[in-house]
C-alpha cells in the first residue's frame, strides 16, 4: 500500500520533471507554475478550513499579504528574495494570528463573514495606502530570483516552485497525519467535546490560522517574484471564494483533495476556452451542486481504488 502510493508520487514527480524538457510552451509552463502556487495556497486553506473547520474567507488576503510583504521587502529595502519570502511567511502568519485572536469566539458562518470583513479591510488598505502600495496602480518591477548573477528563467523558476510545492505537500501530509492534525480535526468535529478532552481550542485555532497563513504567505511571495507585478485586484473576495470552491470541490478534510480541486478549477477556463467569461459562474454552479450531491467533495479518504487492498476497517470487522 505504502509502496504503491510512493510509486504514484514518483511517477507524478517524474512527469513534472520531464514536462519542461518535452513541452516548449511558455503557456503550459505558466499554467503549471500557477497550479503549484494555487496548490500551496489551498493546502493552507485546507488546514484552516478542511482540518480545523474554521470557515475562512480571508485566504486571498493572507496570500496578498505575503505577496505585498515580499515585494516591498525586496523593492524598498533590497532584501534578498529568500529572506523576503521568509518575511512574507512571517507576516502572513502574524496576520493569521491577528485575525485568529479576535474571531475565535465566532463559529460557522459568523466566522466566515468576519474573515470576509478582514479581507475587505486588507483590500481597502492596499488600495488606499498609496505611499506604500501605490494603490490600484500596483507594484511593478518585483525582482526575480537569481543565482550567481544569472536570473531565473521560467524553466528554472518552474523547477524551484515544483520542488517547493512538493515540500509543502509533504509538510501538509505530515502535519495532518500527526497529533496536530488530529487535534485540529477534533475541534472541527466537536469543539466543545474537544475542549472537555483537554484541548486548548483557542491555542489550536490560532495555530491553525498561523499555519494556513504561512502557506499563503509562501504562495504569495512565490507569485510576486514570478509575475513581477502585483496589484490589489489579484487578492479579492472573489479569489477567496475560488479557493473555497477548490477545497470543497476536491474534498475538505483530505490533503490531496483540495489540490485536485485547485487543478480542476485552474484548468477549467483553460480547457474550455469558450467559457472565458463564464468561469466564475460555472464555479458558483459547481459549488451549489457539490454541496447538494457530494458535500464531502470528489476525493475522500475512504475512496477505494480497484488496485488498493481491502479496507482495513472492514477487515477488522471480519467482512
Amino acid at each position: 500500500m505504502r509502496g504503491a502510493k510512493l510509486l504514484q508520487y514518483l511517477i507524478l514527480g517524474a512527469i513534472l520533471v520531464v514536462v519542461p524538457l518535452v513541452v516548449h510552451s511558455g503557456y503550459v509552463m505558466q499554467i503549471l507554475i500557477m497550479l503549484a502556487i494555487y496548490g500551496i495556497l489551498v493546502l493552507g486553506l485546507e488546514i484552516i478550513l478542511g482540518q480545523t473547520g474554521l470557515f475562512s474567507l480571508a485566504q486571498a488576503a493572507f496570500y496578498g499579504m505575503g505577496a505585498y510583504t515580499s515585494a516591498l521587502l525586496a523593492l524598498r529595502l533590497g532584501w534578498p528574495i529568500w529572506l523576503a519570502t521568509i518575511g512574507a511567511m512571517a507576516t502572513s502568519a502574524l496576520f493569521g494570528a491577528a485575525i485568529g485572536f479576535p474571531v475565535l469566539r465566532l463559529r460557522g458562518d459568523y466566522l466566515a463573514i468576519a474573515t470576509l470583513g478582514f479581507g475587505e479591510i486588507f483590500q481597502l488598505i492596499t488600495n488606499n495606502w498609496n505611499s506604500l502600495t501605490r494603490g490600484p496602480m500596483g507594484l511593478p518591477g518585483i525582482p526575480r530570483p537569481h543565482v550567481f548573477g544569472i536570473m531565473f528563467d521560467r524553466t528554472m523558476y518552474y523547477y524551484m516552485i515544483v520542488a517547493i510545492f512538493f515540500i509543502a505537500l509533504i509538510t501538509a501530509f505530515h502535519l495532518c497525519r500527526s497529533f496536530l492534525g488530529r487535534t485540529f480535526r477534533s475541534i472541527r468535529d466537536d469543539e466543545d467535546a474537544a475542549e472537555f478532552m483537554g484541548i486548548n481550542i483557542t491555542k489550536y485555532k490560532i495555530l491553525s490560522f498561523v499555519i494556513g497563513g504561512i502557506f499563503a504567505g509562501l504562495a504569495g511571495s512565490l507569485f510576486a517574484h514570478y509575475i513581477t507585478f502585483i496589484s490589489p485586484d489579484t487578492f479579492t473576495y472573489t479569489d477567496s471564494e475560488m479557493l473555497l470552491a477548490m477545497v470543497f470541490l476536491g474534498g475538505a478534510g483530505t490533503v490531496i483533495g483540495p489540490v485536485i480541486g485547485a487543478v480542476i478549477l485552474t484548468l477549467l477556463p483553460e480547457v474550455f476556452q469558450f467559457l472565458v467569461q463564464w468561469d466564475m459562474f460555472v464555479i458558483g454552479v459547481i459549488m451549489v451542486l457539490v454541496m447538494i450531491y457530494r458535500p464531502q467533495g470528489i476525493w475522500t479518504s475512504d475512496i477505494r481504488w480497484p488496485w488498493s487492498r481491502k479496507d482495513p476497517a472492514l477487515a477488522a470487522q471480519g467482512k
Binding site: 466566515a112 471564494e241 473555497l244 467569461q277 459562474f281 464555479i283 451549489v288 454541496m291 447538494i292 458535500p295
Partner: peptide
C-alpha cells in the same frame, strides 16, 4: 435540499449561489 445538512454546507451553497447570481448579471 440542504435543510438537514450542517451549516457549513448550507453556507457554502449560499456563497456558490451568490457567485452564480452576480456573474449571471455580469454575463
Amino acid at each position: 435540499p440542504l435543510r438537514k445538512a450542517p451549516r457549513l454546507v448550507v453556507t457554502t451553497s449560499a456563497i456558490g449561489m451568490s457567485i452564480v447570481l452576480s456573474n449571471l448579471a455580469l454575463l
